[in-house]
Design a protein around this nucleic acid. Structure first.
Length: 291
DNA sequence: CGCGCTCCCTGGCCGC
DNA sequence: TGCGGCCAGGGAGCGC
């Protein structure tokens, strides 16, 4: 998925074509994504105006004019593609690097929900693996939502500092890589940015989480913030499945220093980058630079 | 409670 | 070119 920088990029794209606009039509093409969609999902959204779009962790939060919030998670393979009603329009219909489409043209088998705004924007949620989710929740109860209530701090907020991180890691005997992927510890960091942040901080992914404190915690916090900010600035990373909300490609993948670079030279020392499996996921790192 | 593992689902890619 | 196996950015849920 889409980790924090990609979700943030999508959020910024959606603000431009949805905030202040009314959902004139909502086409729900499946009963469920990862979870069943709420009862009367399309009917409850139709006619509503989007008043604001926030992000919490990797969740997009579309605030509606009736006090409800549409929660969207992109899972591993979720994308949001924006086009114009009745035509390709601008660069808005680019898809999967090359296929151009509009709503009047083809429909992809994995287009699960399609919103059409009163200004003629067609916003399509596409998710081949269906690990994504959507839910409709009252703004008042938003923070009690099961999926939001135990999330950790936002990594880009000032409150997430070395002390806060060290406090959360204290006594933990899991590898630091697993710890920073845990959304209850800190949100938004997925497999790619976990690898990149640990490399920048010079910390071994296998190091016991509880030993990351003091100077090391300072370096890790700075690295997490730096890599996420740089990726947001680059418009996210485009991997196999991901494009920005407007179909443009993010380019941060060209800045990966270790992720998916097994066998290549470490950009700092030149030694070969290694790969190891942690909790069933690949970790890429430099055994010399990361301790 | 903390931790590790499995599973949800589809598709792309690699090797044969 | 066809096919099986493996891998993929997340994270809920289970068992120990």
């Amino acid at each position: 998925m889409p980790e924090l920088p990609e979700v943030e990029t999508v959020r910024q794209g959606l603000i431009r074509c949805m905030v202040g606009h009314r959902l004139a039509k909502v086409d729900q093409r499946r009963a469920d994504l990862r979870f069943p969609l709420p009862r009367d999902f399309a009917r409850r959204l139709t006619g509503r105006t989007v008043t604001a779009i926030d992000r919490r962790a990797k969740y997009l939060l579309l605030h509606l004019d009736d006090g409800m919030v549409l929660m969207i998670h992109l899972g591993m393979s979720g994308r949001i593609v924006v086009g114009r009603r009745g035509g390709v329009g601008n660069k808005l219909g680019e898809f999967h690097h090359e296929t151009v489409r509009s709503d009047s043209g083809g429909r992809d088998a994995h287009d699960h929900v399609v919103f059409t705004t009163d200004h003629g924007f067609v916003v399509t949620f596409n998710d081949p693996r269906r690990f994504g989710m959507m839910d409709l929740v009252s703004n008042n109860a938003l923070h009690e939502h099961k999926l939001l209530k135990s999330l950790g701090p936002e990594p880009l907020e000032d409150a997430f500092d070395a002390q806060a991180l060290a406090a959360r890691l204290r006594g933990k005997r899991t590898p630091i890589k697993a710890a920073i992927l845990d959304q209850n510890l800190v949100v938004g960091v997925g497999n790619i940015y976990a690898c990149e942040a640990l490399f920048r901080a010079g910390i071994s992914p296998r190091r016991l989480a509880g030993t990351v404190k003091g100077e090391r915690a300072e370096r890790l916090v700075k690295s997490i913030k730096d890599v996420l900010r740089a990726a947001i600035k680059a418009g996210g990373s485009s991997l196999r499945d991901y494009v920005q909300a407007d179909g443009e490609l993010g380019y941060f993948q060209h800045h990966f220093q270790v992720y998916d670079r097994e066998g290549s030279a470490c950009p700092k020392c030149g030694q070969k980058i290694k790969r190891l499996a942690q909790g069933g996921r690949s970790t890429f790192y430099c055994a010399k630079c990361q301790r």
